[in-house]
Design a protein around this nucleic acid. Structure first.
Lengths: 345, 345
DNA sequence: AGTGATGTGGGTAACGTTTTCCAAATGTTT
DNA sequence: AAACATTTGGAAAACGTTACCCACATCACT
């Protein structure tokens, strides 16, 4: 009795067709639930598929039809907000035939271009780009090649859908809360943005604008104080150090992202300051970590899970009807008041 | 002058060949640095490639040759230890032609099977499986279909390489540290493992073994006390409650994973015990959260970055020589002493 | 009975690469 | 000069699937 050969040949659609006594066309139709198959043929083919353990080669499919592969471009695996989005996407895709693959670690336009090209080369059926920094033209180019949904970018392209939080309003929520507590010297840590084109589209810029606008609305224009670093733990840490070194340091620090707020907390602890006794801290994103009892960070929730679900839904819609008009979804953020904010002493 | 058509046809190898005045075979050879190309032809072809902006279709390549795609199966994006591994993998792959795609959220054997099959269907060139829970037979099956490296699994298969931390030694480090502080009643929280096959392979089982062995080495066999729950926050919480209910509760709790240690801290806080005053706590993995000043958890660090680099190197080796004998790499863990451990009172 | 619509199934040409071959030209040894 | 090896390039057949047709049978109306 012969053993399995060293490298087993894959079962192909031809094998299934022969085994079921039908044509490959028929098998293909059954597999894709296409028109023109009788119930008997369907059951015969399915039986053959099961018996032979056949799996369609996505590689071969890619050449003619769909790959049933979706790509997610993720800037940073470590940002838990993105993980929430991923959960939402995965949940909405659960039960469909689509398989999700993601890339991580795109931190500049060049690597974003490399990754999106790689996804197009592999003829993925659709792309979800999370917080991309590429130029609008570049995003358009990608969206022309493959159905695309962009998360975290306030642009209005006719080629792709966008899902966003109302960052401007969200920032105002934080300022309102701190003002209501009695704070006046409220500082902000923003993610530095220099490119003029992106300035109007990027959430970080909108959060900073929302902060400034809300401060003025409360008559606190004179107390506007922004440290421009990055939305990372280190960025928050250094931003806080900058702010603490002011002649009159703030009584509250509003970091534009929770990860940065965590860095702020580190810096404050190191400086021997108690939170919220000596100084209040707020973030943005409501990452899972923010809810942990030992941290209990006041923040703004943009329901990453829901963002993910929405993006996935839009993407499937767009795949089904590639030419349909683009939609911009903007969800309302909600404040999450926890233990790191209190009235100033 | 005609505008771009609605859906631009992709530039193919045929276009390049025609433009360069050579055959498609020639272009293919140049692109793959294959044998049989003159310097003149190479430069002609490369010029045509650049002028036309040609990019080979990975989809088409998949059918005959290599896809230059590697897959990483990740159980959980939120676990920062895995992010460190990813960084290492990405770093080692930087500059190569390989593109990395990953999947997340595999929490049981069924979803692992689904994901690995999906990767094989897409004819990926190699796979890195991180902390899989599938059966050894299943791992062998995957490794037979595609070059594979497994991280976090102490198995000895001839088909795939493994990269591990020395969990046995790591657990001993914690026990040594606690004994040096003067503790004798040191309890352990383990992730329950029932499958006899996996028992010898899974890191959690080795950590529990390492704990027991170290306790005996210190003459503390009589104080061995293990609560078998899970490596989750809840698991740690309930494990701690079990241990606190002993007639003589432990003076130190060593949780087999940091996430579980966080649950232990919750339970202790709830019981009104101070850490490390009343009781010491240690974890394993050195997740980012463990380093937070407000937590400051004593733990064991396994250089995830180095693990990733090693795995990537092994995978490229294996792709180059699929039949070569399998290697098992085991790296040494280092203790990270922080604020949750102190001498017993 | 004739006509058209509908349902059912298959033949075959793509899709864009790589991988054999094979032929011609050129170089090298006897 | 003959015989042989090496280099250089191309033709054509895969690879596994789907899309586009076409053929045939059946059915419902005039």
């Amino acid at each position: 009795m012969p053993q399995h050969p060293a490298t087993a040949r894959r079962v192909t659609i031809v094998d299934v067709a022969r085994h079921a006594g039908v044509s490959t066309t028929a098998v293909s139709k059954v597999l894709r639930n296409a028109y023109g198959t009788s119930p008997q043929m369907r059951s015969r083919v399915r039986a053959a598929v099961d018996q032979l353990g056949y799996r369609p080669s996505a590689a071969a499919r890619a050449l003619r039809g769909r790959t049933h592969t979706l790509g997610v471009m993720l800037p940073d695996v470590r940002n838990p907000f993105f993980a929430d989005i991923l959960d939402g996407v995965a949940e909405h895709l659960d039960g469909t035939e689509y398989q999700l693959f993601m890339t991580s670690g795109c931190d500049d336009a060049a690597s974003e271009a490399r990754v999106t090209e790689a996804m197009i080369d592999r003829s993925m059926d659709g792309l979800i780009l999370i917080a991309p920094v590429s130029s609008p033209a570049r995003l358009d180019h990608v969206a022309q090649a493959v159905p695309t949904v962009v998360i975290g970018r306030h642009s209005r392209s006719s080629r792709y859908d966008t899902v966003n939080d109302d960052d401007f309003a969200g920032a105002a929520l934080v300022v309102d809360h701190l003002v209501a507590l009695g704070h006046r010297r409220i500082a902000h840590i923003e993610h530095r943005e220099t490119d003029p084109v992106r300035l109007a589209e990027m959430p970080n810029a909108l959060r900073a604008d929302g902060y400034r606008h809300a401060m003025r609305r409360h008559g606190l224009a004179g107390h506007i104080d922004v440290a421009a670093t990055t939305y990372t733990r280190d960025g928050g840490y250094h931003g806080a150090q900058l702010l603490l070194a002011r002649r009159t340091p703030p009584t509250a620090i509003f970091a534009g992202a929770d990860v940065a707020a965590l860095g702020v907390l580190d810096a404050l602890t190191e400086a021997g300051l108690s939170v919220p006794g000596d100084i209040s801290v707020a973030g943005y994103d409501n990452i899972t970590l923010a809810g942990f009892r030992t941290i209990s960070l006041t923040t703004v929730d943009q329901d990453g899970h829901h963002v993910g679900v929405t993006a996935a839904r839009l993407l499937l819609d767009r795949i089904a009807a590639p030419g349909r008009p683009a939609t911009q979804v903007r969800s309302a953020p909600t404040p999450v008041l926890r233990g790191t904010t209190a009235p100033p002493r």
